[in-house]
Structures are given as C-alpha cells and as structure tokens.
Design a protein around this nucleic acid. Structure first.
Lengths: 214, 214
DNA sequence: TCGCACATGTAAATCGTTACATGATTAT
DNA sequence: ATAATCATGTAACGATTTACATGTGCGA
C-alpha cells in the first residue's frame, strides 16, 4: 500500500519534472522558490522525497562526494502522469496564517504602543520577504543568460507578480493600521467611530481603503 | 510540567478575554472569526481548550443541558497576564499556503485549458471567501444594536479591511493571470516575452501590474 | 590545524486533521 | 414519531517541525 501523496509531494514532483536534483538541492530549491506558495521546513522534504520513491514517481541513485553519499532523484513516467492528474483535481482554498492580524483581533487587550510595534514588525517582515523574493525568485532570471531556466521566465513573472502585490499589501495595510491606531484615544470600547464607518463602508462596497491620500 | 502554548492557545485565550464561552462556542467562534488569520479545524480546538486548563490560564465548570454536560471556560488572572506577555513577543512571519500559485509555478507541465480552470477556481474561491467574510465578520456588526460586541467595531473594521483587500488581490490576480495565459501560444518555453519583460519591470519598480486598463 | 559553514540527513515530539460517536432539539 | 441538525466531544492517524548528528571542504 503506497502512502498517500500530499501537496508537498506534488511540489517536489514539479521540481523533478524540470530536471533531476540531489536531495539537498531539492530541499534547497523548495525552501527558496516554493516558499511563497507552500512554506515547509527543509528537513521535512527529505521525508517527502522518499515518499516519491515509495509511490514509484521517482527513482534515486547514490553518488559520492568524498566519503559522503548523496542521493540523486529523477522523475519516472508514472511521476509525470501523476503530476498531470494533479492539475485536474480541485485545488485547495488559499490559506493565510498571519499572527499579527490575529493579535489585532484582540487589540483591546493591550495598549497602543504594543500594537504599533506589532504592526511595525509586520511591515518590516513584508519588506524583508519582498527583498528576499526579488533576490531569490527574480534576480536569477534577470542576468544576461536568463539564469538557470531561461525558458521559464514567463512563468516566474506571473508568480512574482502575485508575491509582490501580496507582500506590498501586508506592508501597506500595516502602515494604514498604524495610522488608524495612532488616532485612537485608547484601544478598547471605541465602537463605531467616524473612521470605522468609513472603513466598513469601503469594504462593503468592494473598494480598498488603503492609501487614499497619504 | 505544563504544555507549551501554541498560537492556537493564544487565539482561544484572546476569545476568553472577552467573555466566558462553552467549548462548542469557542470552537464555533474560532472557526468563524479567527479563520482568516489563523485557520484551524474545529475539533482541534477542543484539545487546545484543555491546554488552557493545564497551563492554569483558564478554569472550567460543567453545566447541564438536559442530560448532556457542557463545559464552560473562563479566563484566569494568569491567563490575562499570559495574553499581555504574548503581545510583546516577536510575531511570526505571515505564511501563505496557496496551492493554485504552486501549480502555476509548474505551468509548463500542463496545458492552457487546465491552467485556466485552476485560476478560475482560485478566483471563485476568493469571491466565496469574501462573501463569507462579509456575512460572518461584518454583517453581525452592522445591525442596529451593533451586534454581539458593539464596542469592538473599530477593531473589526481594521481586520476586515485587510481580509477584503487580500481576497480581492487573489481574485484580481487570478483574472490577470488567466488573461496573460490566454495570450500564450503554449505553456512551455516562451521565456522572456514582451509581456514578461513588462511584468518583471513593474515588480522590480514596486508597482502593481494588476488591473491597468481592463 | 582549528574552527566554521556547507551538505546530508535521522528520530522524536508535536501539531493538526479525518473520521467517528452520541445526546439533545427542532421541524415536519 | 422521524429525520435532520445542533451540540459536544474522542481516538487514531498523518503531516510537519525541532533538535540533533555527522562528514567535508575552506579560510585564517
């Protein structure tokens, strides 16, 4: 009885469809480039790679570097079929885990200064992640030779477009929320203020309330 | 030795800071309103509630409804201290799990029709989640009496502003990517096209490439 | 040649989900 | 009276992370 594939399984399978990789390279590549769509720890991917073998979706052989063995994975025909089939299955809903947003939900349990620091850190996170994404996701493709997979640049661009807007949204919203909170007299019990009304109105009308006139 | 708190622990603790809830209500409330910042299954939260007891951050007592026992949780003084302390810890980076984006990274492994369907489903997901969010997160606060926690509306508005923009982004990007892909002659090997260049340029200059003139 | 960073994993613990179970309430 | 749905969980499983372990090349 083969194990059941997870989304991580298909993530690795997708990488293997491009070319063979060593286990280390797979883990590396996954954390670097898949990170923005499917973040997982590196060490997990070593397990996941073995699952590909058990499923018959990849084969492996060992090379040696000095005395140390290194495992090279390669996709099989079945693997390619499985990957194709995956594209036709209904995709999972996007899921966001955003601790600062969670904290903000309990904003009335702390003070303005603390909230401000939280949001500042969120904005900083977003900036850092954006810079990272540019360096890791984009810069390699912008060299003269087009980087490691020049024929895939049309794909990288679409993905980058999302990641960039997503991270900018976090940054802009964080700054927006900081501004709002600065204008609060305190964190609890304010209820329906003028600004609150304005924000809710925008949301219900499908309009963005961020960066109106700053 | 008490168990270590997780983010879910603090999520429940935050709810308990507002008022006591039964286990069922906690699970309900968590999936309804915390879902957009920290999505977890309901059944997990029953376990998590017990952890609050073990930590001494909540107490529980049982009431009876007919012959059926129901557990009511209430926050303790230690619980409030722990919640305050949590706000001061460094927050985790936001994490996004977006399967359709992952699939798109391997766009050259499938055909245009399949990609189009994936993206259509992503856009639909986003619309559905937005409608849900309005009904569950916002509508309760828009009644005459201001809903269950009228004094917290200023907080709900800030959170809703993010959720709305986030879901709109997914929808708009999905439609954008569909348009782009429709203009591709095939899915693989295109490399640096005119459009690709334009998109990458926008990203590197910190500008959004979505909805320019559609 | 000493220490540090890179390369390559494994084992144990924990977090979280899926599937199930059962009593109570309400609508028909 | 029956079925459907709400209310309240538990147990087993599976996915993921944390912490560790060890070899290898490189710079000081």
């Amino acid at each position: 009885m083969p194990p059941r594939p997870t989304t991580s399984t298909y993530a690795l399978l997708g990488l293997l469809a491009m070319r063979p990789w060593s286990a280390y390279e797979l883990a590396q590549q996954a954390t670097r480039s898949l990170r923005y769509a499917h973040p997982r720890t590196e060490s997990h991917l070593y397990e996941e790679a073995k699952r590909l073998l058990a499923l018959g979706w990849a084969t492996s052989h060992t090379e040696h570097h000095g005395r140390r063995p290194r495992t090279i994975y390669e996709i099989t025909g079945d693997g390619r079929l499985a990957l194709h089939a995956w594209f036709a299955t209904p995709p999972r809903d996007p899921q966001l885990d955003f601790e600062v947003l969670l904290r903000l939900l309990f904003a009335d349990q702390t003070d303005k200064t603390t909230l401000d620091r939280c949001l500042e850190e969120a904005a900083e996170s977003a900036r850092r992640l954006f810079d990272d994404a540019v360096e890791r996701l984009l810069r390699p493709y912008m060299t003269d030779d087009g980087g490691p997979f020049p024929e895939r640049r049309h794909i990288a661009a679409l993905v980058a477009a999302f990641v960039a807007d997503y991270l900018h949204l976090i940054e802009r919203w964080s700054e927006f929320a900081r501004d709002e909170i600065r204008s609060w007299p305190r964190t609890d019990g304010l209820g329906m203020t003028e600004r609150t009304h304005h924000i809710l109105d925008a949301v219900l009308n499908g309009k963005s309330v961020l960066e109106p006139d700053r």
